[in-house]
Design a protein around this nucleic acid. Structure first.
Length: 485
RNA sequence: GCUCCGGUAGUGUAGUUCGGUCAAUCAUUGGGGACUCUCAAUCCCCAGACACGGGUUCGAAUCCCGUCCGGAGCACCA
């Protein structure tokens, strides 16, 4: 008799409720810096739902503030590339900065309906009205006055900070964040895509609200920090008779190893030269992770595992590494890398050829190592040994240490003795200079010949860890980026 | 201060909608063992959690109240 499993644990992401037919979802970053692990969540979760239910997937650049959140020309491309890398294949890519005219139209119809107004209150002043739940004098202006102000804004006659278009919501709303929020403001800074063409830009709440409707978005996935947006935007939807999409929120994600970071902070530090670039292995950017040999599928699995909770999560990269190891271990070729090598003269070790499997699961495919009398051992493996100690040189034979001062040993035979500690090694003659770059520094050493053919592949340095071979050639040095153990 | 969220093992989760089948799932991590010419992988075993207090109930992780803790918003940022 078969035992029924007691619990059927749900796998992956929760079902959408109510169960939709086809969905339309979007990921909407502001390209003001490189995509990071944080963006990956949005990319993956949206893509995963569209994959599950079918429908349309949209990548939308919410690049509506050339002032304080100035978009970075390169970042558009980075998002496009990284989205695809992660498996987010957009059916459509939208640039908010291309669509200002549409937003202006909506603004105008709101103005016509008396649902928005032109306000010239200084922002501190307005804040005190808002906190007190009172309307400022502009709220009751006539339609003509509002339209006139709006026209002045568009004509470029209003200075930054001297006039905005406000949504008319409810000055007594219990949540002050909802009261008469700003829909458009004057920003004269140049925009990387449209330069100085537009003096008036919508706020995220406005732009995003309009786009979600225009694009037919069925489900919005957003961070908890944008939780109030729905309440704000619903006023606009009601004014225009639109139907608000379903929303799902997720909490803040912090990764232990990276701590708190923001795109703008990263961007600043990269520009300051604190990091070598946006793919510096210390950074939480996709490009850095990719360079380190993290597979996109590992990030995908990591994010799906995390689910969609509204509680804040503090994840460990260990979990990402575990996912990546599952992907990489079955196919990564094995090589010997000797960090900080010590040459050991081995008496009685004639010219020998060791055949070593490229992968333990496929012993038929081998690489070869040719020895002369001297082998290289990692300092870590050599240190602390005494004369008389015996070691197994993996896939080659056994040695007995004769002296540590001049490092010397004697070859004692090929027969495998399982009692001996196994170490990896390299022939002194045939090897390559090699450098491993890790998030905490660089390790120099020598690597097996053949590694130079694995550029861009993830390999495992036996008893050391997985690395991605970054480059080979220039200066004869092979550069590897450490992935994880 | 005001308005919202949320708190299940070290970490991430399942279960909470419709209380019992939960002496609480899965993964990761840690410990032990097997296997292995890698400190990888694989296999087996073990460890570890319902924030706290009260209430409702025959019965509460699940419902109610309170407390504590954490987070977010209250920008002419996204």
């Amino acid at each position: 008799m078969l035992e029924e499993p007691k619990h059927e644990a749900r796998r992956g992401l929760p079902d959408l409720d109510p169960p939709p037919g086809k969905v339309v979802m979007r990921f909407a970053p502001n390209p003001n810096g490189p995509p990071t692990l944080g963006s990956a969540r949005g990319l993956v979760v949206n893509a995963a739902y569209v994959k599950k239910y079918g429908g349309r997937l949209i990548l939308r650049f919410d690049d509506t503030d050339p002032g304080t959140k100035k978009p970075l020309a390169d970042a558009y491309r980075w998002y496009l590339e990284d989205a695809e890398w992660l498996g987010f294949k957009p059916d459509e890519t939208i640039y908010a900065s291309d669509r200002l005219d549409r937003y202006y139209e909506v603004a105008e119809s709101l103005l016509q309906k008396g649902k928005a107004y032109y306000c010239t209150c200084p922002k501190d002043w307005f804040k005190s009205y808002r906190d007190a739940g009172q309307a400022c004098k502009h709220r009751d202006q006539t339609r003509e006055e509002n339209l006139q102000g709006w026209k002045e804004m568009l004509a470029g006659n209003v200075k930054e900070g001297e006039g905005v278009l406000r949504m008319k919501t409810d000055m007594n709303h219990p949540n002050p964040a909802i009261r008469d929020w700003v829909a458009f403001r004057v920003i004269k800074a140049s925009h990387p895509r449209v330069n100085h063409k537009y003096p008036v830009w919508p706020t995220l709440d406005f732009e995003s609200a309009v786009e979600d409707h225009l694009l037919g978005t069925t489900h919005i996935l957003r961070g908890k920090d944008l939780a109030d947006s729905e309440a704000r935007q619903r006023y606009l939807y009601e004014d225009l008779g639109w139907k608000y999409p379903h929303t799902l929120l997720w909490g803040k994600i912090t990764v232990h190893e990276f701590g708190k970071f923001s795109t703008s902070m990263l961007r600043k530090e990269i520009e300051e030269g604190k990091y070598v670039g946006w793919d510096d292995p210390r950074l939480p950017t996709h490009r850095a992770l990719r360079r380190r040999g993290i597979q996109p599928r590992a990030i995908w699995n990591f994010m799906v595992q995390m689910g969609l909770g509204e509680n804040d999560v503090s994840a460990s990269l260990e979990n990402l590494y575990a996912e990546n190891r599952k992907l990489v271990d079955p196919q990564a070729h094995r090589y010997f890398f000797v960090a900080d090598p010590v040459p050991i003269e081995v008496e009685g070790l004639k010219a020998k050829t060791a055949k070593v499997p490229l992968h333990p699961d496929h012993p038929e495919t081998t690489r070869t190592l040719k020895t002369n009398g001297t082998v290289l051992l990692a300092r870590e493996d050599w240190q602390g040994r005494k004369p008389g100690d015996r070691l197994r040189l993996k896939n080659l034979g056994n040695i007995e240490i004769k002296s540590t001062q001049p490092p010397r040993a004697a070859f004692t035979g090929e027969a495998l003795d399982k009692e001996l500690p196994i170490v990896h090694w390299l022939p002194q003659k045939e090897n390559l200079p090699l450098k491993v770059v890790t998030p905490t520094g660089e390790t120099e050493g020598r690597g097996e010949k053949g590694i130079e053919t694995e550029v861009d592949k993830v390999v495992q340095f036996e008893r050391y860890g997985f690395v991605r071979i970054d480059s080979a050639g220039e200066g004869g040095v092979v550069v590897a980026y450490f992935t994880h153990e």
